[in-house]
Design a protein around this nucleic acid. Structure first.
Lengths: 259, 259
DNA sequence: CCGTATTTGTTCGTATGTATT
DNA sequence: CAATACATACGAACAAATACG
C-alpha cells in the first residue's frame, strides 16, 4: 500500500530540506502554491503534510507570514563535570566568548515535596529554603535554576540563604564557609521532558509540542554522604550541548572552536 | 480572545490526565463520544484536540482501537561518569537488577566523516574501523553503540578490532593491552535529537514525532590528549535517566531503589 | 494610521479507507 | 462478516496575523 498523499508531500519537502535545496530560514511555498504543485491536493492535505514536518521540528509556521525551514542554532556547551574548584556561571560563559547575566534571586520558604525530601534526605514536609535564579547568555534566556537547602542551615547561621540578594562567592561556598560543611562530591541526573507553562514563557518557546527541556538535577554532598544542596537547572534542549569530562582531556576551547 | 475550541477540549482532557482522573493506559472517550460531550463539536475539531495531546506526548492513538493515555515507563539509569576501572555494560545492568544481552558486533571499514575526523584528530577521509553493537535490557532494545577507531591501530597489531566477534575484555582494554596506549580520560557530549529511520525501527518507536533519542558521544584519550576511540551510544529519551557522579556520593543503589 | 492583499488558523460538513474487535 | 474506531481526503467559509502601499 502506498503512503498517504500527505506523507508523500511531507517526504518530498523533507528531502528538499535535508538536501539543502531549502536552506535554513528559507520560506516554503505557500499552502496554495503547494496545493497547485502537488496535483491540486486539498489545502487541508497540504496542511497535514506541513503539520507532519512541524511535529518533527523541521519547519515552523507563522500566521500571516508563512512556513519556514528551522534555523540551526549554535549550541552553548554546558559543562556538567567541572572540578570542585569550579567556575561560576559567569566565568564558564565568558570562556566560550559569550556575555552572561543573571536575575536577582527569588527566595521562597516551603515544605519539601517527595523529590526534594528524597534528595536532601529529610522528612517530606520539612521546611526548605528555595532560591530561584534566571540566567541569560547574550541577553537571551539560557537556563532556570532552582536550589533547595535545608532550613536547618539558616538556623545554624547561614542567614544569607533567605535573603533575596546574590551571594557573589556562590551559595555553596557560603554554606561551606559559614557552617564548615565542605562539598566533597555530587551526583547529576539528567532527564528530558516537555517544558511547563513558565518555562515556555521564559525561554520564549513556540509551544509547537516539539520543544523540549533538559533538567539537570544536582545533589551535592558533604562528608559522610550528607546532602548539602539540591539544584535543578532547566535548559532548552535545542540550544545546548552537555559535556562531561573525566581526567585528562583536551581543553574545552578546542571543542567550542570546532563546534 | 478565548482559546480556540480544540485547545479548550485539549486542555480539559490534559487536566483529567494530569489530575489522575484518566490514569496511564486508560482509554479516552471515542471521537464520537467526545464530539457529543463538547457541544456537538465537529469530529475534526475533536481530532485537532487529540492531535494537540499526541504531539505533546500525553496520549497515543491506535486505529481501530482508540486513544489511550501514555504508559509511564520506569527509567533505566545510564551512568555516564563511571571511574576508569569501569563496569562493563553487563555488570552495570545487573547492578540494577535487570537482564542484559548484546548482539554480535557488526564491523565496517570506512572513511572518516567530519565528525569522526574531528574527534579522532585525523584527516577527514582517513580510514577508520567502525564497530556497531545492539544492546538489550530485559530483552527490550536498550541502546545502539557505534565505536570508531583509527585504522592505524589495526596495522599496529590490534587486529581483533576488524573481526566481527565480541572482545570479552572490552575493545578499549584490548587496544590498551596490544598497543600500550592506556586510556587516561574521556569527554562525553550529550545531545537530544529526533531518531532516524534505523533507530525508530530498532527501538520500536511509534514515529509520532514526539519520540526522541539522546546521543552520548564519548571520546577517550590516551596520554598527551591523543584520541583513542570515539563512541556514539544512542538511547531512547523516554526510558532512560543519565547520572554523572563526582567524587564522594552515596551508592547508586539508593537512587535506583527510590526511583 | 488605514485599508487591502496575502497567508496561516479554526471550524464545519462529508465521504471513504483501514485496522481492530 | 459486521460493528466500531481511527485515518485520509476533499471542499468551504470565516477569523486572525502579517506585510505593504
Amino acid at each position: 500500500m502506498a503512503d498517504p498523499m500527505y506523507r508523500q508531500i511531507a517526504e518530498d519537502l523533507r528531502e528538499q530540506i535535508e538536501s539543502g535545496d531549502l536552506r535554513p530560514g528559507a520560506q516554503l511555498p505557500t499552502e496554495i502554491e503547494l496545493r497547485e504543485h502537488y496535483g491540486n491536493a486539498s489545502r487541508n492535505t497540504v496542511r497535514d503534510a506541513i503539520k507532519w514536518l512541524t511535529t518533527r521540528g523541521l519547519v515552523v509556521t507563522q500566521p500571516g507570514r508563512g512556513t519556514f525551514v528551522v534555523e540551526t542554532i549554535t549550541p552553548f556547551i554546558v559543562r556538567l563535570h567541572t572540578p570542585l574548584e569550579s567556575k561560576t556561571f559567569e566565568e564558564a560563559v565568558r570562556q566560550q566568548g559569550r556575555e552572561p547575566s543573571v536575575s536577582q534571586p527569588r527566595v521562597e520558604v516551603q515544605n519539601a515535596d517527595a523529590d526534594v525530601a528524597r534528595e536532601l534526605q529529610i522528612e517530606k514536609g520539612s521546611t526548605v529554603v528555595i532560591r530561584h535564579q534566571q540566567r541569560f547568555i547574550d541577553h537571551s534566556p539560557s537556563s532556570l535554576q532552582t536550589s533547595y537547602y535545608p532550613m536547618e542551615f539558616v538556623q545554624l547561621g547561614a542567614v544569607a540563604l533567605i535573603q533575596a540578594t546574590d551571594i557573589p562567592t556562590g551559595a555553596s561556598n557560603y554554606v561551606a564557609d559559614m557552617l564548615g560543611i565542605a562539598q566533597v562530591g555530587y551526583r547529576d541526573r539528567l532527564l528530558v521532558r516537555s517544558p511547563n507553562a513558565g518555562e515556555i514563557r521564559f525561554f520564549r518557546l513556540l509551544n509547537t509540542g516539539t520543544e523540549l527541556v533538559v533538567g539537570t538535577h544536582r545533589t551535592a554532598y558533604g562528608h559522610g554522604h550528607k546532602p548539602i544542596r539540591y539544584t535543578v537547572t532547566v535548559y532548552p534542549a535545542d540550544r545546548n550541548h552537555f559535556v562531561i569530562d573525566f581526567d585528562e582531556v583536551p581543553p574545552l576551547e578546542d571543542l567550542v572552536k570546532d563546534l
